[in-house]
């Protein structure tokens, strides 16, 4: 895999289940050690300067863990302290994030009483607490209602406008189509396509059509999407 994402760009990362999206992201975040190769975030090598690389990056995992016995405010304070933010900064930053993600009424409740969507919003706000230059999000839309999803897409667009680089792994082709400037498709651990929508059409040898058709065409294993659907229906 050889991939470069420009500052302020929203890069969509698509792939079938088990293609290696989450593994790639975990290697990018320094949670997994690569067997070979390297990852550079904002000019910092994740292997050699992990603390510097992580300090400028925000991360939304696919299955986020939050301490159930902490309140929303306490959790944000904890993550902010991990990033060594000044307590004075946190005093202002936390209420504004809670407000932005509509969690203010719940700020002092324990996380165990939060709904799935609220937990997801809390994780998103935690990932932005240190105003990262890079945001890596693994399936951030899961469990979020349509209103929340709209707000999240707007947030990504506005962050990108301010110069934040966003690496967005998603199953939702609609989201990728709507917010991403470039899209990469990973299949069986290999990046099989990367580029703008026009580039992908060219690669799939399709003149026009939605991203869904391009995705299915590029990731099919000898069977056409129509045949695949026919096989599924048979069972």
């Amino acid at each position: 895999m050889n991939l470069e994402v420009q500052p302020g760009e929203i890069y969509g990362f698509l792939g079938p289940n088990g293609a290696g999206k989450t593994t790639t992201i975990r290697v990018m975040m320094g949670i997994l050690k690569p067997t070979s190769g390297s990852v550079t975030l904002g000019g910092y090598d994740v292997e050699r300067e992990p603390e510097m690389a992580k300090a400028i990056t925000g991360f939304v995992p696919d299955r986020p863990f939050i301490y159930e016995k902490l309140s929303g405010t306490e959790f944000l304070k904890f993550v902010g302290s991990l990033h060594r933010l000044d307590p004075d900064v946190l005093r202002h930053r936390i209420p504004s994030l809670l407000e932005q993600f509509e969690l203010t009424p719940w700020k002092d409740e324990l996380v165990e009483s939060y709904s799935h969507g609220m937990k997801q919003r809390l994780v998103l706000s935690a990932s932005l607490i240190h105003q990262p230059k890079i945001l890596i999000a693994d399936e951030p839309m899961v469990g979020i209602d349509p209103k929340g999803a709209r707000a999240l897409k707007d947030l990504f667009l506005s962050l990108a406008k301010q110069g934040t680089t966003i690496f967005l792994s998603t199953h939702s082709i609609g989201v990728a189509e709507e917010v991403c400037q470039r899209i990469g498709i990973i299949h069986k651990g290999k990046l099989i396509a990367s580029g703008t929508m026009a580039d992908l059409h060219r690669l799939a040898k399709m003149e026009e059509g939605k991203l869904e058709s391009v995705f299915l065409e590029l990731t099919r294993d000898g069977t056409s999407p129509v045949e695949y659907a026919r096989n599924v229906n048979r069972y």
């Binding site: 975990r26 975040m29 320094g30 949670i31 992990p50 603390e51 510097m52 690389a53 992580k54 300090a55 990056t57 991360f59 995992p61 986020p64 863990f65 993550v79 991990l82 990033h83 060594r84």
Partner: peptide, 9 residues
Amino acid sequence: LDLILSAPT
């Protein structure tokens, strides 16, 4: 672990 190791710890 994911949360802690993805932070600059």
